[in-house]
Nucleic acid binder design. Structure first.
Lengths: 302, 302
DNA sequence: CAATCTATTTGTCATGGACAAATAAATGGA
DNA sequence: TCCATTTATTTGTCCATGACAAATAGATTG
């Protein structure tokens, strides 16, 4: 038992853990000299935990807008400093008094407490206010804390689960089979974040829309088919920051081309925030409020 | 408008749509001569829709146990015949009278009806019976129908969503903060199916356990950390058929090695069904019932 | 100071070869 | 004949290197 082998990761394990493709991992190695994995007996890359952690941090900062060459060159302290600095600037609306408490609860490892807290807050504020303000800001707060490394992945998972639990309950309670418009909610493959979708579903349901959620990662072909089958008026897609920006527009264009022109396409989520224009007949609404405005417009027009 | 370009897919699009890695797609091309994508102006592979569909079908059948060389050689009709034949043999317990009705509902594009139907059935049978029998068999029925190509992806998504909606509600209602054992439920990266997890959570909660769900795709490191932080007694992981068998044992072994030996590790889901032995101190329970037995054993021992 | 043009950065794709792990096929007793 | 063990084949993943377009930053000019 003298020689415990320290844990290392294969290239595909690192791809999974960091979200950086194998190609990218290899290219960085030759271009920047980092990562610099060890090699196992077979000559295959073996990434030490430390490097994987660093890669994770770099990926976070890239999602926040930094470029790799900059980050890879940075020292450990430099990276951490950047992470500290990369706070979301968005601070609209009044402070939510529950925010700190909730982050505390998360850090206190109290999943049930968190759920109850959110539920009570929702009852107090009403769904619309709760979703538009509290959840919105909480998401940002959690995202920031995570980017700064103050929250571990499992804590973030826990938060996501708690909110999902809550919102699904709400949406299920609000559903009526004859609402209008009929909205199909989902994400494209490679996009796993569904919180935004659920929040939108809650808000739209509140205003009388009929929401059908397909969960995450529905192939484009299937979206088309489902939109037809369920006689959908509006297809709502969500893109998180992690979704490669450059793929959004083409994806929307492709959908637009194949979908009956009577059906609208909405794209929401933080991933859309930095986009300026979208293909003809598709609508960007990085903020929830804009989604509500789009709904109002649709309902007025019909 | 004479020449509409027929839609083609890039290699990464095909990877997303089919779940076959780029490496595999390229290798099959040289080894078996299929797929045989066109090339665009840049010399890059451009897969016609027809080939993508065929790849999807092949992937389905591979998940059902067939080997690629066999499938790739097969004719179109041959593949369809195989898909027809690959029914799950499991038909234990009495027929559930609701099954056909539910599949009908799915095919009738009636998401709300489905949810209500499931809910009513749950009330009628009681949660335990409903989960162990109805849902279990429904899952198999849906999985089979999907493998046979009778169900499209969006319909399967819809089913999954409906069940999730239902079960989350149930689990939330059952949660008590002082139950024992304390169970952490999640899946490893690359495993996105969480239905089994939710079903287990419902059953365990019913029997007094305290369940903490982290959703899907929690990195191994994070599971360790969370197990410690939440003072977990049992870590329950779920593996679907789609999860590469060969990675299950090593993954369990790695977890076992890093996790305090006082904490149990359970592995469930259809992906475990074909495994015979598991690492020391970890337990396989491809069937829900076995999970219940494990729980009973744990509770008896404490 | 805004807009346009050049240079660099960056991700993805391609090719072709190697190898271990998984699976099937063949072999040799009981 | 059937089970267990050994040999072959299949199969996924990895490696190295090179090419190129799209995205971004930096320079230049009106």
């Amino acid at each position: 038992m003298e020689s415990m082998t320290p844990p290392t990761f294969s290239i595909s394990a690192v791809e999974r853990e960091t979200g950086l493709s194998k190609d990218v991992l290899r290219k960085w190695e030759t271009r920047y000299g980092f990562p610099a994995p060890l090699r196992d007996g077979l000559g295959e890359r073996a990434y030490p935990l430390q490097q994987v952690d660093r890669l994770r941090l770099i990926k976070r900062l890239m999602d926040a807008g930094f470029r790799p060459s900059r980050l890879v060159a940075e020292s450990e302290d430099g990276l951490n400093a950047l992470a500290q600095a990369s706070q979301s600037k968005v601070q609209r609306g009044g402070q939510i008094d529950v925010e700190n408490l909730t982050l505390d609860k998360l850090q206190l490892q109290d999943p049930n407490g968190l759920r109850q807290l959110l539920y009570r807050e929702m009852l107090r504020l009403g769904i619309e206010h709760f979703v538009l303000d509290t959840l919105n800001q909480l998401n940002i707060a959690v995202g920031d804390a995570w980017a700064r490394g103050e929250l571990s992945v499992h804590q973030e998972h826990l938060y996501t689960e708690a909110v999902q639990w809550l919102l699904r309950d709400v949406v299920a309670g609000l559903s009526v089979s004859h609402g209008a418009p009929r909205v199909l909610l989902t994400t494209l493959p490679d996009e796993q974040h569904s919180l935004g979708l659920l929040m939108l579903a809650a808000l739209l349901s509140l205003r009388g829309a009929y929401c059908i959620s397909l969960g995450t990662q529905t192939p484009a072909q299937e979206i088309i088919e489902a939109a037809h089958a369920y006689q959908i008026d509006i297809v709502a897609l969500s893109f998180s920051n992690a979704y490669p920006q450059r793929r959004i527009i083409p994806a929307l264009a492709e959908l637009r081309q194949q979908l009956a022109s009577s059906k609208s396409i909405w794209a929401g989520g933080a991933g859309c925030a930095r986009l300026h224009a979208s293909p003809e007949g598709t609508y960007l609404s990085p903020e929830m409020e804009q989604g509500m405005a789009l709904l109002a417009a649709w309902q007025a027009a019909h």
